[in-house]
Design a protein around this nucleic acid. Structure first.
Length: 479
RNA sequence: CGGGGCGUGGCUCAGCCUGGCUAGAGCGCCUGGUUCGGGACCAGGAGGUCGGUGGUUCAAAUCCACUCGCCCCGACCA
């Protein structure tokens, strides 16, 4: 049964990822190149992600809305760096109702422009500010090379767009959302992220400052988890988003935008997964616990299933997301492997022996084999399950953090630096110069991921040019 | 857009070089039976315009031309 096994992560990380996404039924390829069908199991994960975020957005005063998919092409052209950044990857609608359109329509690659247009109408006074709106939608960017979840032509995300009276407020909002995302990443996705600032070269087309959260994948490469942009007055000026202040003076607004996409599904796969398959963090897992009933005879089947259903109800009532595996004609061993491949964090095995002892076997996904199995009394099962789920959640975070730490080098020399980015992150002094950044990219394929908000202090010499530098930056090969 | 690879039942592929019987295998699927505490087994069965178009030939999955699509690697990106 060799072909039931996945390629190992060490022999071919990329192929491991591709096969796992398909086999675990998270997603499938669509008829159009670069597009993805998100299957129910993958969408269930995304729904849990959206729920965790949406609740945080609302708690910080944002409301959801829906803006149109189609944008007049001229809108994109109003902000000059925005055009330059997005033009190459636009999908354009030229015909409608069988007629050639007067003005081509762009399928949104992001919604700053159409939202800016609306904000210009809605905002008149300082009393209208701040305006705090988010939308859940999909956008289209004509990418050349795609990979399921990580980069697809169409991807699902949320984009928040806010307008403020002052630069300080806009910056505070931008930073607040960095904190919201960081909290989500660490506490829900169990992914240790590094919040930081992007370089001029890497920032969003049209932003004054871009913050991002960077995460290390299981192969040592970096993935941008999400971004939060301080757009300054760039879009406010392009779309004339203005308000009258208390003194009756007409002012331009200060705007922000921030987004997180289905890419984080890829991050979760690549951070936590092992050679056996997926491992989902309990807080986001579609099924937190899978029940595998074990029996031979019909009598055993009756008693085991009856007991299993009772436990299922009890756990559901306690708020645990439970999947009962009643598939017939499939051996328990197969089911064990199947749920492990699909990343269910906890498995409950229940056979005649367990029924007799009024206990169950709990098997932790993060600890393969016997080591992760424990016998647990049915009395008080819900509490025991919840405790183990919490432990797994924490263990996944700890493991990811330990991995990142062991693959991060505070490289001082360029030689050290080059070695570091082959296997992980280099955290090095950088002068901030675009020339050094470009040369490094050219020579090592590693890019400036971010200048972490958290700095060691002091100063050192730039890892490339040797000039005095006040900040360290993360460099890595990235997805 | 450059480089590489591949299109044959749902999936992975063999067959192609050197044209020739009803086009094969494994997995999966359906039916029945025996199994079932770490990826079970036996028997029977369903399922294919060999990516497309054109050409060569008595004869094309196989040779030729064109074409479409996908995957992988690079430059661009969340």
């Amino acid at each position: 049964m060799a072909d039931m096994k996945l390629p190992t992560r060490s022999e071919d990380f990329s192929e491991w990822y591709n096969q796992l996404v398909l086999r675990a039924e998270l997603a499938d390829y669509a008829p159009v190149r670069g597009c993805m069908i998100v299957r129910p199991y993958g969408w269930a994960l995304w729904e849990n992600i959206t729920a965790a975020l949406d609740q945080r957005f609302k708690a910080t005063g944002h409301m959801n809305a829906a803006f149109p998919l189609l944008i007049p092409r001229s809108f994109i052209e109003k902000e000059k760096s925005h055009v330059a950044g997005f033009s190459p990857e636009l999908a354009v609608v030229t015909h409608g109702g069988g007629e050639k359109l007067e003005e081509p329509l762009v399928i949104r690659p992001t919604s700053e422009t159409i939202i800016g247009h609306a904000y210009a109408k809605w905002i008149q006074s300082y009393r209208d500010l701040p305006l705090l709106i988010n939308q859940w939608n999909s956008v289209v960017r004509w990418e050349l090379r795609t990979k399921l979840f990580l980069r697809t032509l169409e991807f699902f995300w949320q984009e928040g767009h806010t307008a403020h009276a002052t630069a300080e407020e806009a910056e505070a909002e931008t930073r607040q959302m960095v904190d919201v995302y960081t909290d989500f990443a660490r506490n829900e996705a169990a992914i240790p992220v590094i919040p930081g600032r992007k370089s001029e070269a890497e920032k969003f087309a049209g932003a004054d400052i871009t913050y991002s959260l960077e995460a290390m994948m299981g192969d040592g490469k970096a993935l941008q988890f999400c971004t939060s942009h301080n757009l300054g007055q760039n879009f406010a000026k392009a779309f004339e988003i203005r308000y009258l202040d208390k003194n009756g003076v007409l002012q331009f607004c200060w705007t922000t935008s921030w987004g997180l996409s289905t890419r984080v599904v890829g991050a979760i796969i690549m951070v936590h997964g092992d050679d056996q398959g997926l491992i989902f963090p309990p807080r986001l897992a579609p099924h937190q616990l899978a029940i595998v009933p074990i029996f031979k005879s019909d009598e055993e089947k009756t008693t085991v299933l009856e007991n299993a259903r009772k436990l299922q109800r009890e756990l559901i009532d306690a708020g645990v997301r439970v999947k009962m595996d009643e598939r017939e004609g499939i051996s328990p061993g197969f089911k064990f492997n199947d749920w492990e491949m699909r990343g269910v964090p906890l498995r409950l095995e229940l056979g005649p022996k367990d029924v007799a002892k009024a206990s169950v076997v709990l098997a932790r996904r993060d600890r393969p084999g016997k080591e992760g199995k424990s016998f647990v009394a049915q009395q008080g099962i819900a509490a025991a399950v919840k405790q183990q789920l919490d432990e797994i959640q924490q263990a996944l975070f700890d493991r990811a953090l330990a991995f990142r730490n062991s693959h991060t080098v505070e490289a001082e020399s360029y030689d050290e630096f080059k070695k570091a980015v082959e296997t992980g992150f280099a955290f090095s002094w950088w002068c901030g110069g675009g020339d050094c950044e470009a040369k490094i990219k050219e020579e090592t394929k590693a890019t400036m991921r971010c200048i972490p908000l958290e700095q060691p202090g002091g100063s050192g010499s730039c890892v490339y040019c040797g000039n005095r530098s006040a900040e360290r930056a993360i460099f890595a090969k990235a997805y």
